[in-house]
């Protein structure tokens, strides 16, 4: 089961997790991740909102491809990835990812892989609006290194 979705509505990780687990069968492991909008910039300024620009077709295509690739690469039976677009307030969930498998290792790795690729390859552009002004975020060296781990 592959379920990759975009939403401009608030995202509740508990609801997403419940929905995901309701579709599972005999898996023995479920791993989930929620990415949450931070209240402060790296310089400590108060964040007013995150704005995620997206593409009308390619954003959905990119998250579909990333989720599908995870199911092909790891022994997982189900993957879900839901990503916000538009305005996201501090403390709100930006992205929720969950993976299910018979044994835990594959589910951990699949969720990690999906997040590394979402950070660097999903078709989004992220702007941080703070009391000090606005800044467009680009992937960090750590984000690129995270993605590169899966190319080995």
């Amino acid at each position: 089961m592959i379920d990759a979705r975009l939403t401009d509505l608030p995202l509740d990780p508990a609801v997403e997790m419940s929905r995901f687990m309701g579709k599972l069968g005999e898996e023995g492991a479920v791993v989930s991740f929620a990415g949450v909008a931070r209240p402060r910039t790296r310089d400590g300024a108060e964040v007013e909102r995150i704005f995620l620009d997206h593409h009308p077709r390619l954003t959905q295509r990119s998250i579909d491809e990333i989720a599908r690739a995870a199911t092909q690469r790891f022994a997982v039976s189900a993957i879900t990835a839901t990503h916000r677009f538009g305005a996201v307030l501090p403390g709100e969930t930006i992205v929720f990812v969950a993976a299910a498998s018979i044994h835990r290792r594959a589910a951990f790795e699949a969720a990690d892989y999906v997040m590394d690729r979402l950070k660097t390859e999903a078709v989004f552009w992220k702007r941080e609006d703070s009391v000090d002004g606005s800044r467009w975020i680009e992937p960090t060296d750590a984000d690129r290194a995270g993605r590169a781990r899966w190319s080995e």
């Binding site: 593409h55 990503h83 660097t120 390859e121 680009e138 992937p139």
Partner: peptide, 28 residues
């Protein structure tokens, strides 16, 4: 990006086409 595909610098764009420009991506 032309026709939903990333294109190279020497790609020839016809006068009637649309071209989209993508800065570095950042999701998650």
């Amino acid at each position: 990006c032309v026709g939903d595909e990333i294109v190279a610098e020497d790609f020839h764009v016809g006068a009637g086409r649309s071209v989209e420009f993508f800065p570095p991506l950042s999701g998650g």
